[in-house]
Amino acid sequence: MTLEPNDPTASGPSFPDAGAAVVLSRNEIESLCAKAARGAGISWGDAEEAGFAAGWLHAHGLDGSSVLLTHLETGAANRPIVGQGHWRPAGAGPLCPIATGATLSDYCTLPEGALGGGGLTVEAVASPVLLLPFLSRNATRLGHGIAVSFPGGAVIVEGAGAIAGDLGLLVAQGTATLLMKPCTSAAAAPHRAPAGCVGTVLARLNRLAMQTTVPPSDRSRGDAGSGTDDND
């Protein structure tokens, strides 16, 4: 048995097999990704949505933490200007998928979020696969599936979490304009096993997450303790 003490100055969780596939619980993925998003400068509320989205994607067989890291490191920060049938970035550059996903969720039952008629076009979304968790939530609320098409492919999202279609193509999209429409036919969705994480990705997310923490000091360390000896 080893009783080699860990390094007490070590910061945060370590993933010794960096590079290899690592199995994290969904709770860990959500928590790490929310902290990383906050560390990257996203608001606390949107950071919670980022954690939700990454955890959901892993549970549905897609490597959401890698996609989120790509997004956080490229930093598409545009929020949408919402209009009936058409959303576009408020500034130059693509839309932040977390802000856009959260806004799709907020506008789910409002006219600007309506998918009927010619559908809802959302222009230039960065890392668009990150929208799927939000669309799944909307599908539950609306009681019907949502068909999402993009240049070269299409996927279907259902409320119970089923997803089907050109998922690999969607994951590969750096930035894409999406068209969303209601979908009544049930997707023939095979069961998808949860996706593992990549060690190097986790290490980089962890570095971002550490941006939410405060470096230690003697005062900080001492003030949080018991003030009495533990060898009593």
Binding site: A10, G12, V214, A224
Partner: peptide, 13 residues
């Protein structure tokens, strides 16, 4: 309230 780098311990400053 903050989280310390040290083992992510929550602390109060």
């Amino acid at each position: 309230w903050y989280v310390s780098e040290e083992k992510l311990e929550p602390r109060l400053g």
